[in-house]
Write a protein that binds this DNA or RNA. Sequence first.
DNA 1: CTCCCGATAT
DNA 2: ATATCAGGAG
Length: 215
Amino acid sequence: MKNLNNKIKKIKIIIKRLADLYPDAKIHLKYNSAFELLISTILSAQCTDELVNKVMVPLYKEKYKTPKDILNDGIDNFRNNIKSINFYNNKSKSIFKLCEILEKKYNGNVPNSLEELTELPGIGRKSANVILGNYFGKKDAIIVDTHFKRVTSRLGLTENNDSEKIELELKELVPPSEQFDFSIRIGEHGRIICKAKSPKCDECNLNDICPSAYK
DNA sequence: CTCCCGATAT
DNA sequence: ATATCAGGAG
């Protein structure tokens, strides 16, 4: 119990400092609709947001605005158009199947619950929470990507290695109204300071409360 | 636990 | 030439 309270106090400090450091942090993916965000989120798996933007923004503009647009163009054309993105073969299959489901089951719309989203091909909990937080304004969304895993682990906020367990664990520690912003800022911090290989602990404003600093 | 698989930085 | 980037499905 004392340990839990200490964690919560520590998280309060982290929330405050990250908010000061990254007041306007937001997702790097560019989109004009829930559909575009959904497609780009699938494509961003194990891939940078920048590359997804580079490939997809022109495609959304000229041809792929709705699930029907992708279905009508055919899977071969779609796959060919995204082939500079990694895992393009699997991702094309997921997205094509996804578009069929969106048409048949959701009238071309994007569902807005975690349960419905994670049933869609290519969408796991991380991607579902990205959609819910960024498009549907859900504040109590913890987004566990590779950055979130690494940074929260280094900070001593979790001892878990499983993404879903980390998500549920942190949902108990971070105030619901802060969860989404916290996730985005942790991700930003992971990209800029708390990098996988050579973390910049000397530049980190959390190094005084981080058990992993300078190691 | 294995497969998927290209772009960019160094 | 090699390291780094960074989720989901079967």
